[in-house]
Simulated assay, not measured.
Amino acid sequence: MKALILPLGLGLAFLLAWLEPEWGRTLKQAGLIPWLVMLIFMVNGYQVRLAEIPRELSFLKGLVATTVISLLLGPWLALYSAELLALPAGALLGLVVMGTVPSTLSSCIVQTQLAGGYAVWALLFSMALNIAGVFSMPLMLTLVLQESAQFQVDPWPLLRQLGLMVLLPFLVGVTLQQRLPFSPDARPLQYLPSICIVVGVWLALSDSASLFHHLDPLLLLKIGLAALVLHLLLFVGNWWTGRLLRIDRPGCIAMALSGSQKTLPVAISVLALLDGSVGEALLVCVLFHFLILFADALIAPRLSATPVRAASSGA
């Protein structure tokens, strides 16, 4: 049931934004999206477990390499992928934003475990990338979008807003975990982030409802291809970097999945902070999320013949 909430909910969000955009547009203009993003990261912070942190050198090497590839190289790979396929400005913005944001805090951990990788590594990689991403995203968006000569981004307001919307709620959630009696695994907390993502996508798409009346199937195909190219470049880059650093196979699996998946909530929050209509960019982010989850669901079971044993050894 939990796995179906997000895909079914995103489908419903598209339908509501297409048929009844006024409600979503009103709520977006009331400033609801930032609060949804803050709630997502507060819950994520509340669910984080810091009991066991690997101390071996290979973990530290993998963490540094994954951070550099995902947060610093990823935006440039996104720009070149978009330019290679001649994506229009709105789609280019969406792909660059997805290349800039950190990894997911849920799906990459689950898929790492299924693939026989170190689930603990994936968890800590995701946490570190989300914290570091607050500081890297404003800088990288400014550099990369200025390079495309189509957008101008002021990094300092973006840094301040991301700190308030992502980092601060995450730290509050970690702090509350020690003070509240509720289990981090409580069922409402398992569903709440996905519901917030769905509502945020509905509000953002409703504000650009006219986009649905001019969708070009060829453009959708190009967006999908660009998303897969970016994901595979990040996946292969992290995998082979891990091999060159002599990191074992389960560690390379954690690097590849954590460093190539990208988080939709942060992408929504970044687009909400940018001026102008971002409907086409948001469409790219949602398509990227769908395609990558599907692609990794096919890849993960083939990475290891003994997933349970390998995953447990990483703990």
Rank of each mutant, 00 (worst) to 15 (best):
Q111P: 03
G242E: 13
L264D: 08
A78F: 13
M98C: 05
A30C: 03
L164F: 14
A209W: 13
G117Q: 01
I292G: 01
P301A: 08
W18D: 08
G259V: 00
G276W: 04
G314P: 00
V166D: 07
L72N: 02
T112K: 02
S136G: 06
P169C: 10
A297K: 07
G90W: 10
S58I: 02
N130Q: 14
L79M: 12
R25N: 12
L228N: 11
L221C: 09
V166G: 08
G200K: 10
L293M: 13
T241Y: 05
L282C: 13
P250L: 02
L244Q: 12
P157E: 11
P184T: 11
L168D: 07
F14G: 05
I195L: 10
S183R: 14
A281H: 10
L233A: 14
L114C: 01
G62Q: 02
A30L: 13
T175N: 08
I195S: 01
A86S: 14
G99D: 13
D275Y: 03
R160N: 12
S313D: 00
I131H: 07
A272P: 05
I131E: 09
I253L: 01
V201A: 15
I109K: 06
L180W: 14
L220S: 08
L219I: 06
K2H: 00
L282P: 12
S208H: 12
W239L: 15
E280S: 13
Q177L: 07
V201K: 08
I40D: 00
L257Q: 02
A315E: 14
L87A: 02
W240M: 07
S269R: 13
A297Y: 06
C285R: 11
A3R: 15
L230P: 01
A226G: 03
P102H: 03
L298I: 05
K262D: 05
L158R: 08
L57R: 14
V134S: 06
G116A: 02
P75E: 11
F14R: 05
K2F: 00
